[in-house]
Design a protein around this nucleic acid. Structure first.
Lengths: 142, 142
DNA sequence: GAATTTCCGAGCACTTCACTCGGAATTGTA
DNA sequence: TACAATTCCGAGTGAAGTGCTCGGAAATTC
């Protein structure tokens, strides 16, 4: 997981916190979250193309979540920024690609399938609405 | 997850399959698994330093698992080859490092903590013994 | 028309990935 | 003792990805 996912998530959670309050400029987000603004521009472009945010140009413009915070999951954000959740090539999400040359049902495939499933369940189970109003201490019990 | 993890896992599962049959040469593994032998050399060096395999030099030499297959988990292998399981800096395994500048309990931290926990549980729950004797179709139900 | 803001593309230093290569040290076998 | 098979070790390399910066065009509001 790179900073793309981290920064992007911070950005999206920030937008979720300001849901219903009109557009939010990247400048404001960058300052609040202490992130490089020019870099955020790149990331938000990807999120926009993925249909997760809408941008409005001009003075007083900014970004808004394209859907309600409760309808956007952490999985949506991660998938947009880091690509599909697939630890290995032989576990592509959606398609069943088998590239294990010698054995089509190699034992190691089980590892990646289970891992992928585990990651996807964890990320798809969290919505921006939850993340926006909850602190770590309350939510996570490791 | 890079090919280091994939190749390394295939290597370890192969060794597990030949557990009790003496040493296995990298040449044999590379041929069976259709992997670049010279590259495997690098990976197995890491696994050896991590105490997961033992090497024996000379003709008829090769590698053996350092412990019984049921005492080595997929998590051991991944951690050795890909580093500690930590999706973000702020979720280092073992230590509690907080580097979120503005908010020490930022909401996004919950994402990474939950994700990390999920990955670790999945990987630490699979042993080489299981993987060695089971095919994908039997084990995984996605 | 001027300030603000999103859009867009290019570029850049750095690191990692996925290897290859050459060679030394060790061990079994003929 | 020669030799082949191995593990060990370090260095190097091309391609890709990371994490940015920069310049500028287009749209919108005041």
């Amino acid at each position: 997981m790179s900073t793309r996912g981290e920064y992007g998530m911070r950005l999206m959670v920030d937008l979720a916190k300001h849901w219903g309050q009109g557009t939010v400029s990247l400048h404001a987000v960058a300052e609040r979250e202490d992130l490089p603004e020019a870099y955020l521009e790149q990331l938000v472009a990807v999120l926009r193309k993925a249909g997760l945010v809408n941008g409005k140009r001009g003075a007083g413009g900014g970004y808004v979540l394209a859907r309600e915070p409760r309808d956007i999951t952490a999985g949506d954000v991660v998938r947009a920024l880091e690509g599909p959740i697939e630890p290995q090539i032989c576990t592509a999400e959606g398609e069943a690609i088998l590239n294990c040359v010698r054995e089509p049902d190699c034992g190691t495939r089980a590892v990646w399938l289970k891992l992928q499933d585990s990651i996807a369940k964890a990320l798809d189970g969290m919505t921006l609405a939850e993340l926006a109003k909850t602190t770590t201490r309350e939510r996570v019990h490791v």
